[in-house]
């Protein structure tokens, strides 16, 4: 059988399992919920700020930003703050100052900024979870159900079967990202208006010695920035998907494979808190998922962690996981 036919076959299996539609449904519901929540919280903060700094100022984002800078400053000066938190807040404060100086409104929520924010926020947990739903049983499911025999007796080389499954997976990831983009831009459009795609966004923030350096910042239009974020998101999805693919090849039961990859993911996001002090932890794939933080500059400035490092670590994981999957799948005995 040709690879094309195999992939088509795999894709139909996925469609029949309805799993893709569950993922897209989840995506739709969550985006609608986020958009509604965001809408509510904007209204509330607007009221609160209005109360605090005077009614007339509530629509002037300059005032709101200035107020936030003062608040952050107070928090930095208050005792009992640990250094990493302070460094992070200081970076944020400098960013706000930069926005003020350059007359860029960072707090206006439009459907463009929501679409971007949604991906930035879901990139390290929600998106990987969706990917896991797709990837976790792609091989182990067939092992468990015994249907792998039907595939293997057709005389197709094993690597080709596995490759068709992998290509199906990465194609579906593209579909998921596409719908994440479409859903969030349309749904949030109804809440916040279809606008903001050409507004400037700053990127290229740089931290040196715990200080934000603003001289290399470039402003790009929002649509370009969104593309950057979704590009990073796909790379993350690829890494998570490939690792779950490997687990799915190795582990026979789907439940176990979901469990393993989920604990690695959640464990990783907890571990990211210690990454500044514990160097070994930063080689874990799940610690390096927040690629968009490097783009937006909302990073916790950690010595030695940057885009190059994280992309390199994830690439090594992707290549390693693929190699292990293929070697293991072609060498193993399959007795059902």
């Amino acid at each position: 059988m040709k690879l094309y036919k195999l992939i088509q076959n795999e894709m139909f299996k996925m469609i029949n399992k309805k799993r893709l539609f569950i993922v897209l449904g989840l995506l739709f519901i969550m985006i609608a919920a986020f958009a509604y929540g965001q809408h509510n919280s904007i209204e509330r903060t607007r009221e609160q700020t209005a109360k605090r700094i005077g009614i007339s100022a509530s629509n002037d984002w300059h005032k709101i930003l200035e107020q936030r800078i003062i608040e952050i400053k107070n928090r930095i000066d208050s005792p009992g703050m640990d250094d990493t938190r302070i460094a992070r807040m200081r970076v944020q404060m400098e960013q706000f100052k930069y926005y003020l100086d350059n007359n860029i409104n960072p707090i206006d929520v439009t459907n463009a900024s929501f679409t971007t924010k949604f991906m930035e926020q879901s990139l390290f947990l929600f998106l990987p979870l969706l990917i896991i739903i797709l990837a976790a049983d792609i091989v182990s499911g067939e092992l468990g159900a015994g249907t792998i025999k039907l595939l293997l007796v057709q005389g197709v080389p094993r690597w080709r079967i596995l490759l068709s499954k992998y290509i199906t997976l990465i194609t579906l990831q593209l579909v998921v990202l596409f719908f994440a983009f479409v859903f969030s831009s349309i749904i949030s459009g109804f809440f916040f208006g279809f606008r903001g795609w050409t507004a400037p966004v700053s990127t290229g923030f740089k931290v040196i010695g715990g200080q934000l350096v603003t001289s290399d910042i470039v402003n790009v239009p929002q649509w370009q920035y969104t593309m950057m974020v979704y590009g990073a998101a796909y790379f993350v999805a690829l890494a998570v998907g490939t690792v779950s693919f490997m687990v799915s090849v190795i582990v026979k039961s789907t439940a176990a494979s979901i469990g393993i990859i989920l604990s690695a993911l959640i464990g990783g996001s907890i571990l990211s808190n210690f990454v500044a002090d514990w160097k070994l932890a930063r080689y874990l794939f799940s610690v390096n998922l927040r690629l968009t933080d490097y783009i937006s500059g909302s990073l916790q400035p950690i010595e030695g962690m940057d885009m190059t490092f994280s992309v390199a670590v994830l690439s090594v994981w992707i290549i390693g996981a693929l190699m292990i999957s293929f070697i293991y799948f072609t060498k193993r005995d399959i007795m059902v």
Partner: peptide, 26 residues
Amino acid sequence: ACISLIFVTSGFYKALKSTIGSSGDN
């Protein structure tokens, strides 16, 4: 998938270009 692939690869390329070598702390 094709549309999305074009979109994300060019986005990722841009992201790399804008961050690598500038956010460098290592």
